[in-house]
Structure formats: C-alpha cells, structure tokens
Design a protein around this nucleic acid. Structure first.
Lengths: 341, 341
DNA sequence: TACAGGCCCGAAAACGTTTTCGTGTTGAAA
DNA sequence: TTTCAACACGAAAACGTTTTCGGGCCTGTA
C-alpha cells in the first residue's frame, strides 16, 4: 500500500526543492532542460498525479459542479444527468449529485453541504415541497456567495440566474393540437396540481390549444393530481365516468395509467381513444402501444445547463449580470398510442 | 457578494487568534467560557461554516464516496444510486457520480480523476468493455493506494474487495422454476453473451432449473445477445421460428421486446406464452401486461454497498483484510405476464 | 579586475483548517 | 516573598500545491 506520491517526496528523492519539482512538471523555463527531464521522468515512472484537494484549496476552485435533483429513478432526470456529465467531462469537470427527494429540508441541507467548498456552482431542479413553500432563500444564498446557479425544468421567476427550460406551454399545445388534427373532439387532460410549475404550464398549453381551435374547455375533463401515490386509481376513477376520444397526460406515468384505465374500460388505444404524453424515456418507446409523446430532450437540457454554468465559471470578468434563459425545443414523436390520419 | 467567512476573518474581527476561534467553536476547555460564547455568537450570526476543502486537506479525508456506473438511464442503476445516497447522507457523506458508459477508457479516467483526492473510496459496477478486456489494473491501483472499493452487480473474482451481489443463478433458477410450476414445457431464454458476468450466471440458473426438473436444455431455445442496439429485431426473428410456451429474459428490455415479438406473432401473453424477467423498475410494473420479474432490490444493494464502504473507511484498524461478499436475496414478483395456476 | 546580466534554483507565503506546544498571567500555597 | 499550578490564549506546523521573490553562480564585456 503506497500512499500516493507528493511533490515533497519527489523533491526529497531527487534532492531538489519542492518548487523546482512543481515548476519542472509545469515546464517552466526557470528550470534547466536537464532537471526538467529528470523530474518528469521520475514523475512519470512513479505515476505522479497532483492532489485535487490541494489544488482546490490553492486555486479556490474545485472544478466540480453540483447537481441537485428531486429524484433520479425517473428517465427524464437520468437523461439530464447524462447530458451534464457528458459536457462536464469534456471540460475537465466532475459532477457531484445530490437527491432532494422532493423535500425542502434535504434540498437546503444538500446545498449547504456542497456550498462549503465542494462545488464551484450548481445545476438544480427545484423540489416539489420547495415550490409549494415558495422559500428560495438557500438559492439566493449561494448566488450571493458568488456561486453560479443554473435552474432547469422546474424553475422559478423570482430567482435571477441562468435557466434552461422547455417551452412547456408550447409543447403541451403541440400535443393537444395533434390530437385535434387527428380528429379528437372530446379531449381530457391528466395533469398535476398548479403549484408544480411545469404542470401548470402544460395545463395552460392544453387550454390554449382548445381555444385556438374554437373548442371550449370543460372543467369536467380536467384531472389534477396531487399525489403520485394513488394516481393510478384516481385516473381509473376519472376515466370510468368520462366519455373521451383523446387524452393528454403531462408525464409518462399518467400516460400509462390512462391507457390501462381505458383498456380496463374495454376501450381500444388508439382506435377509440388517442393518448399522448410528455416524456423522454424507455417506458414510452417500450410500452405497448408505444407512446406518442412530446420529447423533452433531457440530455440536451443537461448539456446546455452544464455549458451555461461552466461558461459563467470561467468567464474572467463576470461583471455582466445578464442572465439568460435558454429554451430547448420540444418535438412531437408519433408512435402507436395516437391514431394516424 | 460576500465571499464566505473564514476563521481568520472571525479572528481579526474579534481580535483574537485563529487558534482561539477554532478551539472556541469546537468547545475546547482551553478557552474561557466568555470567549467561547462570544466567538460562537459571532459565528452563528454570520453563519460560519467550515470549508470542506481545507478540512479534507487537513484530515486527508474527503467524506465523499465515488460511484462509477456503466449507465444511469436504467432503473436498476438509478435505484442503486438512491440506496447509496440514502445511507451516505445519513452518515454525513457526499456522493460523487461518474458514468463509464460501458467504456473501459472512461472508467479508467474517471477512477484516476476521483482517486486524486476527490474521494475516500469507491462503489463500482464494472463496464461491459472492461469485463470483455479483463483488464482490472485500475481497480487494483486504487486498492493498493489504500482506497476501499466495493463492487456490485457486475463483479469479478480476481479483485479482492468487498462485494454486494444478488444470487443471479438462484434468481434465474427461481424464475424458470416458476415457469415450470405453472406448466410451461418449452421454455426459452433471452440472455446476453457470456462475458457479461450476470448474463452468464443467469443462463446457468436457467439450465440448472431445467435439469432439476428433468428437462433437457435445447440449444435452439437459447438466444444470446451481444449488442443492445439491434436486440429488438433479433428477438423478433428468434421468436418467429420457435414454438415456446415460456420465456425467461434476463432484463427488462429483453422482456418487453419478447412480449412485443409474441404479440406480433399473434400470440397472447400470458395465455399462450408466459414471460418472466429480471428487473427493478417502473417499466415492469407499468407495462401491459405488467411483468412478472425477479426483483433485484437495487436500493438495498446500494445501501449495503455504502454501508460496507463506510464501515471500512471508519474502522480504526483496517488491518483485518477479510473482505466479505454480501448476497442480497431476490424475490419473485408475480404480475400479469405469467399465467396463474 | 570589476560588474552587469542571464540562468537555475530555493525559501516562503498563501489557500483554511486543526492541533501541539509554549508562554504569560493569576491566584494560592509554602 | 517566592514558587508552582491552573488557566487562557497565541505561534507555528502541517496537509499538498503554486507562485513570487530573492539570490548564488557563471559568462561575457568594459
């Protein structure tokens, strides 16, 4: 068990000073060619790698970005991580992940933990409970400390920072418009309660699409779900008493629950009812019938968030406080759960 | 933008020395009650939090555990992360995640990066390419450096370290036995090529189950898939020409592809053919028909791995080199894709 | 011979902690 | 009055780097 080579040991071994070793390894012209080669050869032979912690302390940079998520067992967030990881790695950054489990307290805890030197900046999607509480002091805190923050997906206007979002309203509108285009007349929506920002926006898109086509919304066809837990049953109940020919569901789970509910009712998808969802994942394309969806391009979101963050970290003068909000385009993916024209 | 309070600043402000501040905050008896109170009050008021990097450097401990995975957009690995994160958080550890994308080079790179001070130990599931190459020098390296390593899922005998696995063979046997119990006579298996350790073990379980029931294995009913990419087509082709009444698939993806293939062939699941898989995820229980599976208990695996790692990190004398391999029990979950007796 | 100017290199500070050791002051005991 | 312990605090080293600054030694020139 050899406990990691340090500059000091190399120096002792080669009978030079620590500074000489450091300079030699960084190819300083202060050091003679001969000494340089000697040091480098030794370092290479014994596989010297500088200690990240020491570097972080010295440079007051960790080259690590922290990402805080509500959950991970959810293809959307997983693909976002992939995207972040990809560009972070390209630029020589590490990624450190914390889960809030949609709890306000854990979100705060995690951010405090990471803010004490572990991380140069944050990429975050706000926890459900936090959105409900509308308490964002921990976000302002890190910004005040000069740590860049990039919000994605579940964002909030009050916080001034870079953001990466999709146009949820437009995406939802696109989905519902598709249902209308293929001839649906009575279109229901299965969405979340309004304090979830994305849920609210998607509901709005649904309403806009109806309006744009001269169809008046029917409160009775709108189901807002509070709790993921009992959602399956709730959706089944809802469908039992409604007569629909199109359903827009704001996520993968609701989509599949809806299809199951319809099938149980003896209806066929998409022959009797077309279903379209919002999603990114395996589930959508594996499902039978495979789900027509609005693709959120999670990896792209993650990649952009990472790029924004790193750019701000490395910009020599960050005087310019012009935060930007990037909007990633959604796309309609037609699969089997909607009728074809 | 206030740039984070340090001990030095508190010291200057209160006109005492840095050591006094440090001691006061840690309630040292060396410091008078009065000074202690004064310092603590000040620290609290301005929300002082010690700098993790400095602590890491001093203590030569980061209280961070690194987890390296082949992929993340896969419910199994995502749940494992959840498990790790949970216990890590309880014990005051951070989790830093790197993705190998099943590439040997990226696995090596990531581990080298993390090994240079970012992490106290590793939790890892070996990349496909690495298992193929059988090159584990990077794993031995970190072990030699005194960094504990815990392997899970895709493990390898050659490396001496703690491991958390499920009994893949027994799990597979359980699955196939179930198919036999409900009356299947011609049972096929859809598995991976043999260099994937878990694939090989599950194939073995399949064979053992057949043997135990006096059924002779038929090579023609065994499909070994090399590449995830074209798997769907490959499975469809395979099924087209086989006459089966039971299928055991070694993962979620293969299970759903199989069902799709069967449906396309005009067969009913589970009426004509029962299908059972190996999995953890959303897909299995959302799918229609929902999948009967062998549950791998990913969160439990992650939790145990984390506990093993932390225990080894904190054991005062790690003299004892008795590595253990923990086996997490699998369980059979009967859902809709298999016939009921 | 003296001096300027390269060329190489080392000492030391700094990043923010913790901890060991030393030191000055006070009060009480001898 | 002297001595000694207890008490309260500070200086400094250490963790592993990088970087600034200063200095010794040679070489060439006046």
């Amino acid at each position: 068990m050899k406990p990691k080579l340090t500059l000091k040991q190399i120096a002792r071994e080669l009978d030079v000073s620590v500074s000489t070793v450091s300079k030699a390894l960084r190819d300083s012209i202060e050091i003679s060619e001969e000494t340089r080669q000697k040091v480098k050869a030794f370092a290479k032979l014994y596989n010297y790698k500088p200690n990240n912690i020491a570097l972080s302390l010295k440079n007051r940079k960790t080259r690590t970005i922290g990402i805080v998520l509500p959950e991970i067992v959810h293809d959307f967030f997983a693909t976002v991580i992939s995207g972040v990881e990809q560009v972070a790695n390209e630029k020589g950054y590490n990624v450190i992940i914390c889960l809030s489990n949609n709890s306000f307290d854990r979100e705060v805890m995690n951010m405090e933990m990471l803010a004490n030197g572990s991380t140069d900046g944050f990429i975050l999607s706000i926890a459900k409970e936090t959105q409900q509480k509308k308490d964002y002091h921990h976000l302002e805190e890190v910004i005040n400390q000069g740590m860049p923050l990039v919000l994605f997906d579940r964002v909030v206007d009050e916080i001034k920072c870079d953001k990466v979002i999709i146009d949820d309203t437009a995406g939802a509108k696109k989905a519902v418009q598709h249902l209308i285009d293929i001839g649906c007349k009575r279109i229901g929506i299965i969405t979340t309660v309004d304090y979830i920002s994305v849920g609210k926006l998607r509901t709005q898109g649904y309403l806009e699409a109806l309006e744009a086509n001269g169809m008046s919304p029917d409160e009775d066809l709108i189901l807002k779900i509070e709790d993921m837990q009992g959602s399956e049953k709730e959706i089944a109940e809802f469908l039992k008493t409604r007569d629909l020919d199109g359903i827009f569901a704001v996520n993968e789970q609701f989509s599949t629950s809806a299809i199951r509910g319809l099938l149980n009712k003896g209806l066929k998808v998409p022959d009797d009812v077309s279903v379209i969802g919002f999603s990114d994942g395996e589930l959508a394309h594996r499902f039978i019938p495979s789900l027509s969806t609005i693709n959120q391009h999670g990896a792209e979101i993650g990649a952009r968030a990472a790029r924004l963050l790193i750019e701000r970290l490395e910009r020599s003068v960050d005087a310019e406080e012009s935060y930007q909000t990037q909007i990633v385009e959604t796309s309609l993916i037609e699969r089997e759960s909607t009728r074809h024209k």
